[in-house]
Design a protein around this nucleic acid. Sequence first.
DNA 1: AATGAATGAGAATTCATTCAT
DNA 2: AATGAATGAATTCTCATTCAT
Lengths: 192, 192, 192, 192
Amino acid sequence: MALTKIDILKKSIPLFKKKGYGATTLSDIALECGVLKGSLYHHFASKDELMLTALNYLKQYFVDRVFAIAYNESMTVEKRLERLARKSEEQFLEGPGGCFMAMIGTETVINNPKFNEVILLFFKDWKQAFVHLYSQICDYKLAMEYADKAIMLIEGSVLMMRIHNNPYYLTHVQENLLTEFESIKSYNAIKN
Amino acid sequence: MALTKIDILKKSIPLFKKKGYGATTLSDIALECGVLKGSLYHHFASKDELMLTALNYLKQYFVDRVFAIAYNESMTVEKRLERLARKSEEQFLEGPGGCFMAMIGTETVINNPKFNEVILLFFKDWKQAFVHLYSQICDYKLAMEYADKAIMLIEGSVLMMRIHNNPYYLTHVQENLLTEFESIKSYNAIKN
Amino acid sequence: MALTKIDILKKSIPLFKKKGYGATTLSDIALECGVLKGSLYHHFASKDELMLTALNYLKQYFVDRVFAIAYNESMTVEKRLERLARKSEEQFLEGPGGCFMAMIGTETVINNPKFNEVILLFFKDWKQAFVHLYSQICDYKLAMEYADKAIMLIEGSVLMMRIHNNPYYLTHVQENLLTEFESIKSYNAIKN
Amino acid sequence: MALTKIDILKKSIPLFKKKGYGATTLSDIALECGVLKGSLYHHFASKDELMLTALNYLKQYFVDRVFAIAYNESMTVEKRLERLARKSEEQFLEGPGGCFMAMIGTETVINNPKFNEVILLFFKDWKQAFVHLYSQICDYKLAMEYADKAIMLIEGSVLMMRIHNNPYYLTHVQENLLTEFESIKSYNAIKN
DNA sequence: AATGAATGAGAATTCATTCAT
DNA sequence: AATGAATGAATTCTCATTCAT
């Protein structure tokens, strides 16, 4: 019956994704949670702490449920890439479309180094997952390049999606990444 | 000596770029302009109007000074692409790095449709410029794809640049776009 | 092992002495007691009641353990004065130096008449003790004067001690009171 | 017509004297000033800054209007002491009786070192004034003792006055100080 | 055009108190 | 007795906006 920290995080993440950190008020969150503003302080010492916890929570979710897919040896590399794409897409499309990490990062880099630490870790882990996959079809250095490019393309597409209110940008980019992956693989297979 | 609208815009754009719309106060802007808060209202009826004017001002700047390069027939296509890249890079690297349009767009899509209109026009014009260049080395449909991809890559790199506080992401992506352009051109030249 | 009312009083008095009534929160007290805020309400109906009990508790402590010394006929008058001084000094120097009664009194006279009643009794009893001692070396009317003066000097010195963070003010005043007592005694002995 | 900083200080000092720092709210002050809460921030950046300004204002008032009397060579020493006593008494009796410096000092020593700096300066200047007067009728070292004692007695009497709601404590102590001063003077005159 | 004082709505945060478990 | 979640009123502070001078 009682409201838990996780409940609050789950309710607040979509709000933060929708309006950003500054524009989301604790009243908004309290309303969404069906409690009074003051009650949130029983769970989090401040808005900053709530955000920090949300960032860590979501980062861990991605590490455990999304990025982990890249290391699941029971699937082919292509399958893993596809699943990873689908899983992250799911998150980016959910609710008011967007990438929580990118949004909060853009908004708060300058004033909240604490937030940025987590966000940087998120992107590091994401890159690592891509590197792991790409390094199976090309050399490590190139894999790093591909990983960076993949993330930038996805983030760029998420931005376009948000602004144009059109999920196609993201889904299209994801498809391209998959077909490009196959091309690289074929090309390198022939070469060797 | 008198403070003009343009002065205010020039002072406020870097502030908005640094902290976003919500977190930038009229006091911040007034301080930067060396004037009192109330005085800004002689030039703009509201913060919203100031932002809207800033968006239009910057959009026009890009249209006239950056995107226009794409249509300057006195240069080779490659040269134009390079110049366009340099010019936009200049803007994205200036002050607190970032893309004004992307930042404001992300932050305000949901609550300020008025802002979004201009932002969408900006991206439309930007795409058009790229399409114009790419369509000189490949067919129109493909050029559209390349244009979208270029913008998404650049915006993704600007995000990474901001979060990692490292301009390399952007400059590297720009270089890649140029070399890739040459590849496409060569490839198509051979083909035909 | 169970937490008793007395335990709470003993833990809260130093806190109130340190920060005053308003600035000491029930959370502070609960933390000090190793218990949760809500639990305090099993022992005291309100913060006011806790304070009132603390005032009475401390007043009774002074009456029984400090002021009582003045009436202990098994000691010389000087000895009694000295002991009384030492005992009260002990309390005023303990923890965050200061006089609980004076502090709470100053802070709450205007808004909490209930508190003031006890505080006035404290000062009445304190004065009585001094009067009892002084009246043994001079006439009653003069003893009253000396008693008032002693208390004012001590309280003034406690204030200085607190502000200057220097116990010397208090100890020095106490010494002076003792030597002055001897002078009065000698003077009156000669006179009679 | 417009509310000035000084107006706010004059309105807030009695409030702070009555209820202390913590218990006096900006609403109280705003109400007293006939403005809205937010308006106070046009004049003071924070409650702390308001208090700090009030402390400095009052300290300066005492330095210029009260302590200065001690150095006014156009009067006899006794006259100066009397005037100084009257002038400070006036302040301590005004409104809700009490010594602003002592009250704020007691309440905030531990948490606001900034406040304490000013308060310590106040007491240093006060002592200096007394030392200047006493040193004209006895040696310097003794004058220092007398000065400390005078301040402690006065502060102790102000406390008693506040708690007993009876100005007699203060006026009586002041009178005693004056007669004692005469005694010391006579005694030393005879001696030399 | 500029000033600067005032507004008023709303933000985050605190805290004494209540109450079901 | 103790917990810990929730309350709700109050507090400090912010900020876009207005307006007389």
